[in-house]
């Protein structure tokens, strides 16, 4: 019975991946990609990796899907503004025969190498699981994944948080926020009342869920990345619906929030170095509290980063916040 479910999952994943890639209609491709991500999350659950399943569902499928959709909307708008002078490119057939052959050969090669790497692993190797389990008591948390991410290999996570900051800096450097697009609905008063009602209801629930995920990360699957993704989802909903109580923060607060995760992470690391320890070598008894502090700051930064990535650029110097309050105070 279990193999039947897994085989169905694998077949559906491969089929969805193919359909998403060959879809002529980009919108259809994005929708298939989101469906693919949700099934992939299920696959991670079947592999007993709920941490990755949560991250895949929230970031891989949900927020990446939202980013694709906003990109698609922008592309269509650009096409309209260009007066549809250029015909849409013929999707999927551009590479020609050689391109297709090279892609296929490359894919087969990479798949074969990966398969060989897994095959070459010594059977029943314990990996690092035992080593982690042995020192789990000293890590400050009781969930192994969090212990690895925020203590044993905190260095890697520090760099990942840095990558997120670099991503938003790069986006801000090349593009300005397309506020007309985001606010157009709100300004025209055309956000349907049901949508506003749903957002008013969901955003508080999402804040609670994010807090819960952050807190539960110490003992069970959860943590800063999942909590941040939920915050980011709430941010995207707010950007799309603009309820009257939501105002984009001033730019310096945005910048502070974006950098908070990396700053707190680095700050803790440097303070420990100054105190004569190694980078991110938590003193005994302090690990749990320091991990929670870092994760709280990282959650905030991830949530804000994902929201502002959806915005797609640096908020204009004219500062959108006053405009927004202005429009929203109108009857």
């Amino acid at each position: 019975m279990i193999p039947a479910l897994d085989i169905l999952l694998i077949v559906a994943l491969l089929w969805l991946a193919r359909q998403a890639l060959v879809a002529r209609d980009l919108f259809k491709g994005v929708v298939l990609f989101i469906a693919f991500g949700l099934l992939l999350a299920l696959a991670w659950v079947r592999l007993r990796a709920p941490d990755i399943a949560l991250a895949e569902a929230a970031i891989g499928s949900g927020l990446t899907g939202a980013l694709f959709l906003s990109t698609l909307g922008r592309l269509r708008r650009m096409e309209r503004e260009a007066g549809q002078a250029e015909p849409p490119p013929e999707d999927g057939r551009r590479g020609g025969w050689t391109g297709g052959f090279l892609t296929a050969a490359g894919t087969v090669l990479v798949t074969a190498l990966l398969g060989w790497a897994v095959w070459a692993l010594p059977a029943g190797a314990p990996g690092l699981g035992d080593a982690v389990q042995a020192r789990l008591g000293e890590s400050g948390v009781s969930h192994r994944v969090t212990a690895v991410l925020l203590n044993f290999r905190a260095y890697d996570t520090l760099l990942e948080v840095g990558v997120l900051l670099v991503a938003i800096v790069a986006v801000w450097a090349v593009a300005r926020a397309d506020f007309p697009f985001v606010t157009r609905n709100a300004e025209a008063g055309s956000v349907p009342p049901q949508q506003t009602a749903l957002v008013n209801l969901l955003v508080p629930v999402m804040l609670v869920v994010a807090g819960y995920l952050l807190w539960i990360g110490a003992t069970a699957p959860g943590g800063a990345f999942q909590a941040g993704a939920v915050l980011g989802g709430a941010g995207v909903l707010l950007l799309l619906s603009r309820p009257h109580w939501a105002v984009l923060p001033e730019r310096r607060w945005m910048r502070t929030g974006l950098a908070a995760g990396l700053l707190v992470f680095l700050g803790v690391g440097l303070a420990l170095v100054i105190a004569g320890r190694r980078l991110l070598e938590y003193p005994a008894g302090w690990a749990g509290a320091l991990i929670l502090l870092i994760e709280a700051a990282v959650t905030l930064s991830i949530g804000l980063t994902l929201t502002l990535l959806f915005l797609g650029g640096r908020p204009a110097a004219g500062d959108p916040a006053p405009t927004m309050t202005h429009t929203n105070q109108q009857p």
């Binding site: 049901q194 749903l198 629930v205």
Partner: peptide, 16 residues
Amino acid sequence: WLVLVSSATVCCLIAG
């Protein structure tokens, strides 16, 4: 309850 609320609302929004 969450699925109920969001599915009913989203149905309404798509139809609109």
